[in-house]
Design a binder for these strands. Structure first.
Lengths: 240, 240
DNA sequence: CGGCTTGTTGAAGTCATTCAATATTAGTGG
DNA sequence: CCACTAATATTGAATGACTTCAACAAGCCG
């Protein structure tokens, strides 16, 4: 199986064979974790960068009162904080969502990769900017979309991202999110997520069950969500 | 008056005199704009970077149906997208909130600044990461806080940021936001913003009027908001 | 098998929206 | 400087979206 981390970066900058080798090697020490496992916790000093090789993870912030708000999903090929060496402490936590295979790149090695190789630097910049762009889309969803539109939009985002890394079929993909996790991500209650999913199901728009998303009416889903994938910035400026 | 853009970057990396001069010079061609003026619009190819020297600006995304969601406020010293040359098109718009003095740095010049000078690069990285961190805090606010907590949290954020750039008094600062703009930022209706502000006023917690925020009960406001300023990452890692 | 997590549904309540009307302020032109 | 107009602020009443509380079903793991 190809390394999706390297593939992702390589898709947005022309990497030399040496750079590819270096990035691949940095992922050698990957380790498996169970679902729901905290990789790093809010307040910790950041000791490195996590790269998700298989499975899903998420960033989240705890809220006074006991709950949490998920602020991003990390899919295979995505990585955690590059904050290492730049910011003081982590302002959020990272946890696995499913059983996952995670590589940990030490801060020093990461620094070297990011600093020394212009192509790699650019690829990281790109990834960082896309992350921020997704975050802006989340704010829009939370602020201006109804619960149904919000669910639809998240499904569109995740399906598009899965497709970008070759992990989606024509009208379905893995979506290993419990309704509780969805609620944590969407700013809704699990109960309401359940009701919204039922509505989407009975409306013949989409179906989420057993960790699989099936899109029954792609055009309808996109329209409902008000989804436009341009914010995922698929294509790089310079043609490889 | 000092250039807050240069001051901000200088606060997080040790800049040489030459670098300071270069950054300052890049802001020479500043221009005034009226309030509510679009500096760049969603979908445009990004032609440079905006630096806010005086006044306030915001990033926003339009939503199908006519409204908009503000996703960030740009205070004096803040700058718009560094996306130039990395991403395809802009996924959001930038507009002035008040009458503002804005410098426009051409993409080429920006590239040179960002790429050639390690200290400047690092400062930009830092600023970018803080922006993202603020965005995460917004998602948490929208997802998990009541309208009153949300207003309180935004006031805390903006007051803290104003203080960081030396534009706040002990218990008050400029806050040139209409209730309509606040509503666009908080994902609420203007009517409800009005009611929340009244509640905060009659509770003796804070007072927002005539473009000025007066914090009557700092501890109470912070507690209500669940505000912890560590996500603004005030201090850099390397001691200057 | 038994316990735990996840999913499902109903009924009641709350928070924020919507609609609508009026007051206040600010900006503009005579 | 005043009159006029538009933008902003304020308040009430009714509606609606989502939450809360509660109960139960279904699947999964040890």
């Amino acid at each position: 199986m190809t390394n999706l981390f390297v593939a992702k970066l390589g898709g947005h900058a022309t990497l030399t064979t040496a750079e590819i080798a270096k990035l691949t090697r940095a992922c050698q020490g990957a380790r498996g974790y169970p679902a729901g496992h905290d990789l790093i916790h809010e307040g910790d000093a950041s000791g490195g960068t996590f790269v998700v090789l298989e499975g899903w993870a998420c960033r989240y912030k705890s809220v006074p009162g006991g709950g949490r708000q998920i602020v991003a999903f990390l899919l295979p090929g995505d990585f955690g904080d590059l904050h290492a060496g730049v910011l003081t402490g982590l302002d959020h936590s990272i946890a696995t969502v499913t059983k996952a295979l995670i590589a940990t790149i030490p801060a020093a090695e990461m620094d070297e990769l990011v600093t020394m190789r212009p192509a790699v630097t650019e690829a990281f910049w790109w990834a960082q900017l896309v992350d921020e762009s997704i975050l802006r889309a989340w704010v829009v969803s939370m602020g201006r979309r109804s619960s149904m539109e919000r669910v639809a939009h998240l499904m569109c985002e995740l399906y598009a991202r899965m497709r970008n890394i070759g992990l989606a079929d024509a009208d379905s993909c893995e979506m290993p999110l419990t309704q509780l996790v969805l609620a944590d991500a969407l700013g809704l209650t699990p109960v309401h997520v359940n009701r919204v999913l039922r509505k989407l199901r009975t409306a013949g728009i989409m179906l989420l069950s057993d960790g699989v998303l099936r899109v029954l009416d792609p055009a309808g889903l996109t329209r409902l969500a008000g989804f436009d994938d341009n914010y995922l910035h698929r294509r790089p400026t310079r043609t490889a």
